[in-house]
Nucleic acid binder design. Structure first.
Lengths: 346, 346
DNA sequence: AATGCTTATGTAAACGTTTACATTATAATA
DNA sequence: TATTATAATGTAAACGTTTACATAAGCATT
């Protein structure tokens, strides 16, 4: 049905080997035959089949990216970073998303296997067993923000501890002595690390340390709202609140404003993640930005290295740097707005 | 190096054909040998190679998605819709993005070709020639928001005309008789259609029709700002402004507020695209929402149909429905906020 | 006991490439 | 002119599957 290298060979009156050589511009083919082959290629509109090629050369020149349920800007940015870096290394990207349970991840792994030379997996609840069972050990893998202890895989994780530490230290530098935290869900690794960073920053900054200052939360806007209400009712009100993520910070902001309390004059506020909305709320929210782009770049670079070295090198765990973005809610001036969105009509 | 079907065959003392039959659970294989083969598969941790399989069955069971530069929520939503629908049809998704110029699109097409059974292309400036030159005519293709007139390809486009018409009609229903438009860039197809919808809505609603009411713009926030300032200075000020996209509407909002004019009391405002920020500005902006999810679902469904029917059926152009989302800026109450973001810590 | 019919398994071709190796043609050397 | 080195091309195996067809074994029928 479709035109193959054989058709070209026949038309140009050469062997398929010669055609292949012309296509991969091997230099040992005579100018005249080269012309003839190229002519045939053009006339027949021959398009080489990547499958056959990959099978033969045992490389696909593509890398895979497995994501959890794709939602919002965050994953879009991950894809963007990964794709650009992959392209830079002349690799294609194969994305598979929306895998929330273990079963779906398994099928995704099975599907992608053989189609890529390496794989980046981002999934909160994947375990080493699942990977081992569904992927050949020869396939290079990089884990992105997964919580696996296994040392046999490369992994990249957000530096939650450092980010929280920096943000809280920043608040301390603003002169705050009594800083509350609205915590994330228990047993959530990101949340635990952020809490750890908060506590250490208090110690390091010689600020007040008190379990009374730690309010529960679950990363939802509603829990941030509730926590802030409770905090405001306390007899000794803290002068600042650090929410373990932006959603809770936004919920807290609503509660604070409803109570008629001024941010940052009467109480300062900061979040974590630097989701786009935080620039648009009033006052704009200070937050900790994860360079999602870096995340993708690092992951791909590591993967490409693994591919090049045939997966034979020491695996390592890497912490991705984060950055405090001070805005109005902690008492800093509002920085110039970063255009974050591009729409279809732009 | 890696375990193939041959190794399994040897270990189980059967032919590779039998192994293949067991793997694809053909029912004509005896229970006893089946057991033996499965045992061998387990012991060797055999993982079938998709490439060989695809080459043999002449299907990849994957579809491709070519996107322009990936930025922001919009494309993330497109991918999401496409991936979910693809998965529903048991197809994999291969995404390739960041293709801004023709050259990059060409390499993307060449790379993806052979790896997918069908392709969705979303690119403002792709032309039919490029497609024809780089893809076999047998490969099913669906164009998403591309501006090609060629009838040999299926295409999906946003219903800009209808959306603008609906939005402007909505303003008319609010009692506005004099409605300005801030236009998009000249020669931009989306912009032209939105203008056409605006004009027709005025006629249909018997509202004032005057070229004075049409201000130039280029879809940028700055141009919206400028346009609004000009509009406010006119001796006969319109009672409403329809911006051809949300970015311009946000720019216009800034200008209006700086002038101390109340929205929507003194002047109503509406945009187009329903980008996420519009829910968070004060007052929240009425806009026209493009169901991006529908876009993906429709595209995939059409593509799968094309694949099933081997690309032999009548191609068609489809308009994707849009929906007016009334908010405070046109005088409607603020609707409950839709959670749009999910962050890494959620 | 020979024949035919199932049923299970094996053989080998096919899918579309690349590439090691073999062959031929050409030119250079003795 | 015969020999050898070099350059261009061809042959065929390999990559890992699936599957049409061939074969063999078992069994029922005559």
């Amino acid at each position: 049905m479709s035109i193959t290298i054989k058709d070209v060979a026949k038309k140009a009156n050469v062997s398929i080997a010669t055609v292949s050589r012309v296509l991969n511009n091997s230099n040992i083919v005579e100018e005249d035959t080269k012309k003839r082959v190229q002519e045939a290629v053009r006339e027949l509109v021959y398009l080489p089949n990547n499958l056959g090629r990959s099978l033969s050369i045992k490389r696909t020149e593509a890398i895979g990216l497995i994501l959890p349920d794709l939602f919002g800007e965050f994953f879009s940015e991950v894809i963007r970073g990964v794709d650009q870096t992959a392209q830079h290394h002349k690799y294609h990207l194969l994305v598979s998303s929306s895998h929330d349970d273990r079963k779906e991840i398994e099928t995704a792994l099975q599907m992608i296997r053989g189609r890529v030379d390496g794989l980046i997996i981002m999934s909160a609840d994947i375990d080493v067993q699942t990977i081992n069972k569904n992927l050949p050990k020869s396939l290079p893998v990089v884990l992105l923000n997964c919580q696996v202890d296994d040392t046999s895989y490369d992994s990249l994780n957000i530096n939650n501890y450092y980010g929280a530490h920096q943000m809280v230290s920043h608040l301390i530098n603003h002169g705050h002595k009594s800083i509350s935290i609205i915590k994330g869900p228990v047993n959530n690794h990101d949340a635990e690390e952020r809490l750890r960073g908060y506590r250490q920053a208090l110690r390091d900054g010689k600020a007040q340390f008190d379990s009374e200052l730690e309010s529960p939360g679950d990363f939802s806007e509603a829990s941030g709202y509730d926590a802030a209400r409770t905090i405001l009712k306390k007899k000794t009100r803290p002068s600042a609140i650090f929410a373990a993520n932006d959603s809770m910070a936004i919920g807290a902001l609503s509660a604070i404003q409803e109570a008629g309390v001024q941010v940052p004059e009467e109480i300062a506020l900061a979040g974590f993640d630097d989701i786009p909305i935080v620039q648009f709320v009033k006052p704009s929210l200070s937050s900790v930005r994860v360079s999602i782009n870096d995340l993708g770049v690092l992951a791909v670079n590591r993967l490409i290295q693994a591919i090049r070295e045939k997966n034979k090198f020491i695996k390592q765990k890497t912490l991705v740097p984060v950055e405090v973005i001070p805005r109005e809610s902690c008492g800093c001036p509002k920085p110039p707005r970063i255009p974050f969105y591009r729409t279809i009509s732009n």
